[in-house]
Design a protein around this nucleic acid. Structure first.
Lengths: 343, 343
DNA sequence: TCAAAATTCCAAAGCGCTTTGGATTTGCTC
DNA sequence: GAGCAAATCCAAAGCGCTTTGGAATTTTGA
């Protein structure tokens, strides 16, 4: 069923039917109802392609997920982020189109999306320090919004980020308050912007508390369970082992816990652990009282909001780019406790 | 830059330029080269929308990810699957469009995709037993392919599945060979087709070995770390505790291991564990020698192949639906060993 | 050399929609 | 009941592409 058939069926012109369906005022209440009714029974909806051609809008947003050729890792956060963004899109009549791309092809993909006029804008995932995609997208004139930030870039752009620095500073402060002095960091890859900021928050707290940085307590890598395990194990075999560990992801926190328990220690008593919790749907942090003390910020909610920001920006290109910083909350679970006394 | 501008620029008609670009024979080698050259320098590529309108193809495949309103879980497997499928699409000039949909809206979404002519076909994710989407898609006349299978459905359809039954039968057999007699199962939700088949494989092996089914050793639930932990802990406190546990997911296997170690037992010695490993990029199962003995089948590879099957089916609608059953390999790691002697 | 066959190109229609510019009808006012 | 504004509707152009049906040019064969 297409517009022509529908309008013939109703004995109206295509114009009138189109207007009725799109809420234009120059059509009577009676006809509008009649048209809507017919559209429903014939299961008509306008072809996105044709509509797009006519309006010049794509009614689609692109998500380009980088797939590092080095580590071949699909960001585990992305499923939930996409789920959030998808809610916003479907509420606004947009499609989401997804490309998963080896990072050396990224430039080509953005150019393709632009020149094929396939999308009205894109979401940038997983920004790295001084991310080259930002000047590229500026140059292409393709509206975009970044999940996270890319330090060092000077031109303004739209982003939504969790306050990584602050979250990790607070987490570290919290551990100091509990009396810990030796605090380890199991971080993500630090060319990723978020990891860089987290380290920064951690560092600042140490400095403020007059504690020197110890490279042996600061690890950075792909956030797998095994990475958490290996990192924590190494730290815990040090003569001067940490009494607390801050961890960038729930998955690696599981590994950290394993290392602790393997040593016959008790998490939350001998060694405290704070993790960051993205509130991923398949990684629940316990029930009412969380297992891990964690800085918590829902990545799905971030998806919802950032998508909306991008749609707004597309709607209203004149407005300067919006930005939004979400504060993580600190939820206290069983994995932290007062520093054990040195005896 | 659009076709018109490009052709004016070259002093050719739109027809000729279009033909040159699409590999039609009625254009000389010389002009073709000239056209291709120009397209490249002007960074021209045809608008997908316009092309789709003209050809009647959408050049897009839809992925509708169900989001159960009950558990709100985004299937953690889906990121890697999508990554695989995406490779196939981009190689074939297709876009992937994604909808994440509360399952009560699924019907509407498929109808929408169809009536908006937004996609040429769809991939069905996460089939449940006797999945209603299959008759629905048949009725809509929307080409589709299923990742997994949906038992009980009678009409033929295209699918690609891992041989879940066989994998879990082999895993169970393997444990019997090692002398285990009490074997637990930590399965996914058993209204999901894959989980149902896995349980089936497990059951058949037990029966063949003359071992009765014990409900206390068979758990089914959302495959989180915590679910693995809780399930294993319960089993291990039984008087007649299992000496081996088979687990449907690496994530819950981590929980199973935790429960084992918490009891002061050693995995692979006191309690053997076999997991299914989807080879997710963020959940590496150790290095050369895997940590967990596992039935292994790459979900990313499944994505690649199923996408190709769907494209073939769209290309060639007359052909009867293709199906493909992938066998999982059994990789032996440190988590299994001979059954401990009863003393 | 000239007609027939290839080769190379083009004008225009059509895909399904929106939107402009106008035409027709209806409802009021006096 | 004439005149005018408001309400209601429509024909046709245009979005950027593919493709049909032909026209113009070149090559070939006798």
């Amino acid at each position: 069923m297409n517009l022509k058939e529908l309008s013939q069926n109703l004995g109206l012109s295509q114009t009138t039917v189109s207007r009725a369906l799109n809420g234009y005022p120059e059509v009577s209440m009676a006809t509008r109802r009649r048209v809507e009714e017919a559209a429903r029974t014939f299961n008509y909806s306008p072809s996105t392609r044709a509509k797009g051609l006519a309006t010049g809008k794509a009614l689609a947003i692109g998500h380009v997920i980088p797939l590092s050729s080095k580590h071949e890792m699909v960001n585990p956060v992305f499923g939930d982020f996409i789920a959030g963004a998808g809610e916003t899109y479907s509420r606004n009549g947009y499609e989401m189109i997804l490309s998963i791309v080896p990072d050396e092809d990224e430039r080509r993909v953005y150019q393709g999306l632009k020149s094929r006029r396939a999308v009205d804008g894109v979401i940038v995932h997983g920004p790295v320090m001084d991310d080259p995609r930002i000047p590229l997208l500026h140059k292409l004139g393709l509206p975009f919004a970044v999940h996270g930030r890319a330090s060092v870039n000077e031109t303004p752009y739209a982003w939504l980020d969790m306050n990584n620095r602050n979250a990790f500073k607070r987490a570290t402060d919290f551990l100091f308050d509990l009396g810990h002095q030796r605090i380890g960091l199991v971080n993500g890859l630090e060319f990723m912007d978020f990891a860089h900021r987290r380290r920064n928050g951690y560092t600042v707290s140490l400095v403020e508390h007059g504690v020197g940085l110890d490279p042996a307590l600061m690890r950075s890598g792909e956030m797998t369970e095994d990475f958490g395990y290996v990192s924590a194990r190494q730290m815990l075999t040090l003569d001067d082992a940490p009494t607390a560990i801050i961890c960038s992801s729930m998955i690696s926190a599981l590994g950290v816990r394993r290392a602790i328990e393997e040593k016959g220690l008790v998490m939350g008593k001998d060694v405290s652990v704070i993790s960051h919790d993205d509130v991923l749907s398949y990684l629940k942090n316990g029930g009412e009282t969380p297992i891990f003390t964690a800085t918590r910020s829902s990545v799905r909610e971030a998806g919802r909001q950032l998508a909306q920001m991008l749609l707004d920006a597309i709607e209203n290109p004149a407005r300067p780019p919006q930005t939004k910083l979400l504060e993580a909350e600190l939820v206290v679970g069983y994995s932290t406790g007062p520093a054990p006394r040195k005896d």
